[in-house]
């Protein structure tokens, strides 16, 4: 009997020499499964949007600490900027202001006239837009996308879907808003599409970002399309997101190859997509229709070619001038 008891004692597993908890393989399996579940939830369902906004709000103090050195450097730099630099700049601005004042005066009379004519024709009023000045705080940290973070958020009534422009042209679109900052996807990002119009002949098309190099593509336009080098592209305004007439880019290359029915058209954005720090967030007054988190639902040209082809592409061949 004692022998049997002894045997039982011997059968007991020896205690682990170092306590390590579950094996690392078990942990790997558990946390990988958790991550994959999170990826699936976040990319397909909208449950985590509110959670992300709260967490980013919690992160705000850390972000402020991280921004402090750069802010300090900028402030001191500004402080020591030479006097004559400022004077020069001031003079330039005054000249610019004078020019713009004259243009504005003409604009106000034109706007009155436009309204009057629209009344006469009983046409709908053009959409009005509201705008907020913002500053780019930092560049997005994801190397796969082209995004920037702007220091205006839901507290300043920024809505997802607002167009982002600088002094010379469109640079992107707000895709996510947090409480005091918002994420802007640049027009060079592959996931952003922007409806455009060629200024010269009113031809409508859609421009897609090209990703790594700072260019835009105009895919799926026929080889005989009337687009030349140097053509200026402006927003068409038919999407209800971007106000009409903002400059987007200019065509730098039109290549027609014998083996493809489509022309390969490359454009360079006019706006300083990665240069300026001051931007204007423009949203149309009736922006309530953009309530979803992800506003850019347009499929990418490279990965989902078939879907793009099946959707009705803008009317390219008939060169209709958009109603003004």
């Amino acid at each position: 009997m004692i022998k049997g008891f002894n045997h039982k004692l011997e059968q007991q597993p020896a205690p682990a020499f170092f306590v390590r908890g579950p094996s690392s393989f078990a942990r790997l399996a558990f946390f990988s499964a958790l991550s994959i579940a999170l990826i699936a939830t976040d990319s397909r369902l909208q449950y985590l949007t509110a959670l992300r906004q709260d967490l980013v709000a919690l992160l705000q103090p850390l972000q402020t600490v991280a921004n402090a050195p750069a802010q300090l450097y900028r402030n001191t730099d500004e402080y020591f900027t030479a006097h004559h630099n400022l004077l020069n700049e001031n003079r330039q601005f005054k000249q610019q202001l004078l020019k713009q004042d004259i243009a504005l005066q003409r604009l106000s009379t034109l706007m009155l006239e436009n309204e009057h004519l629209r009344n006469l024709l009983q046409a709908n009023k053009a959409l009005e837009e509201s705008s907020i000045v913002g500053e780019i705080v930092h560049i997005g940290r994801d190397p796969f996308t082209k995004k920037v973070i702007v220091n205006r958020g839901a507290n300043d009534h920024v809505v997802a879907g607002a167009a982002v422009v600088d002094a010379v042209g469109v640079i992107g679109q707000v895709t996510r808003t947090y409480s005091s900052s918002s994420e802007v996807t640049l027009i060079t990002d592959t996931s952003l599409a922007i409806p455009i119009q060629v200024e010269r002949n009113g031809l409508r098309a859609i421009a897609f970002g090209h990703g790594r190099d700072q260019t835009l593509d105009l895919p799926f336009l026929p080889a005989n399309v009337d687009i030349r080098r140097g053509d200026v592209l402006v927003t068409s305004g038919i999407d209800g997101v971007y106000p009409a007439g903002l400059k987007v880019g200019s065509v730098t290359q039109v290549k027609v190859t014998a083996d493809s029915p489509f022309a390969r058209i490359v454009c360079v954005p006019t706006g300083g997509v990665e240069n300026h720090s001051q931007v204007l967030l423009v949203s149309l007054a009736h922006g309530e229709m953009w309530e979803g988190d992800e506003v850019i639902a347009t499929p990418k040209p490279s990965t989902k070619k078939t879907r793009v082809k099946s959707t009705p592409t803008p009317n390219n061949q008939s060169k209709i001038h958009a109603p003004q």
Binding site: F31, S32, L34, S35, I36, A37, L38, I39, T41, D42, S43, L48, R52, G140, R141, D142, F144, T145, K147, I149, R176, E183
Partner: peptide, 10 residues
């Protein structure tokens, strides 16, 4: 990074 949750985690 503002990407989809779980990518860096995995």
């Amino acid at each position: 990074s503002g990407g989809v949750f779980g990518q860096y985690a995995l």
